[in-house]
């Protein structure tokens, strides 16, 4: 088994901030808009370096999305920053009409996604955003797993023409992917090679999937772990290739099982290679207040849940 080490816990939102800072220096067309969450989104450095390219819109997300659409006209590449809840559900129609349907080159950057937002509770913990965004024609949907990958993705999406939803989170989590990685939109990353079960994970669940694979290995089960950072377009070839070898799959995401990564995987497999699948995801529920670790455990979003799902799906082969 490959060994992955945590180089020191960091939050994915800081990866976004670092990526935006880097972009500020290399791409003068990059502009940033923020709805009163500059510190939370780690956009301070970009703001300090390029005050003329930073737009504080106040607590007015609908206006922010419309403005971002308008800013593309004339060649700017707007990055909007707010929490995932206010980046999607609150402004769905603005994104739908002014950005997606209008084909605007806006990068919707969303922090504090999922239950790991923690103590603020369900009003702020969106578990439906991936579904909302992946249903929009032309929208690219990315959910990164650690600091390094979020930084790389932030830089990569500036080069992609078209609307992108980039989702990341609040808590400090293991930082284990390479600092100098080449982030390719739509390309899955195989982290562990295995023969018995495929585990496809996204976001914070990728590290948990690696931990699960180690536990499974101790039990004599060989798990293949695939990091799906891009939920749309989904890397069909990588998923089908893996399940052709293993014969069963577990999907893992910090999102409702309705509308998330798991359903996208199920659709691909039902068309190409029907395969027993188990879903590690929230079960059509809202979140609640608690620490990220407590919530991950309560809602079945950790390594232990992935191990259980893997053992269950193996029996269905």
């Amino acid at each position: 088994m490959k060994k992955y080490t945590d180089s020191g816990k960091k939050d994915t939102r800081s990866g976004f901030g670092a990526g935006l800072t880097a972009l500020g220096k290399t791409n003068e067309n990059v502009v940033a808009l923020c709805a009163d969450l500059t510190g939370s989104l780690k956009m301070d450095e970009f703001k300090e370096n390029h005050p003329e390219r930073f737009f504080q819109v106040g607590i007015a997300e609908a206006n922010m999305m419309g403005m971002a659409a308008g800013m593309t006209i004339g060649g700017k590449i707007p990055f909007t920053g707010t929490f995932a809840n206010f980046s999607t559900g609150r402004v769905y129609d603005q994104i739908r009409q002014s950005i997606a349907y209008s084909g605007k080159n806006v990068k919707i950057c969303a922090s504090h996604a999922g239950v790991t937002l923690g103590e603020d509770g369900a009003t702020h913990q969106i578990l439906e955003d991936l579904g909302l965004m992946k249903m929009l024609p032309g929208m690219t949907v990315i959910n990164t797993c650690d600091y390094n990958q979020t930084k790389a993705a932030t830089i990569a999406i500036a080069e992609h023409k078209g609307p992108v939803y980039l989702r990341f989170g609040r808590p400090k989590v293991a930082n284990f992917t390479a600092e100098d990685q080449n982030f390719k939109i739509g390309k899955a990353v195989q982290l562990q090679e295995g023969n018995d079960v495929t585990i496809v994970a996204t976001g914070h669940l990728v590290w948990e999937a690696l931990q699960a694979a180690e536990t499974l290995n101790e039990k004599g089960i060989s798990a293949e772990v695939v990091n799906i950072h891009t939920i749309k377009p989904l890397d069909k070839d990588a998923i089908v290739k893996s399940v052709k070898k293993t014969g069963c799959i577990v999907t893992a995401e910090e999102h409702n099982y309705l509308g998330g990564l798991g359903e996208s995987v199920a659709r691909i497999l039902s068309e190409s290679h029907p395969t027993p699948q188990e879903f590690v995801a929230t079960q059509d529920t809202f979140g609640e207040s608690g620490t990220p670790e407590q919530l991950m455990e309560k809602y079945g979003l950790n390594a232990e849940a992935i191990v259980k799902a893997s053992e269950k799906v193996l029996k269905r082969k």
């Binding site: 659409a69 308008g70 603005q94």
Partner: peptide, 9 residues
């Protein structure tokens, strides 16, 4: 909103 964005650009 869109017009303001275009005006900023």
């Amino acid at each position: 909103s869109v017009a303001i964005g275009a005006a900023e650009t």
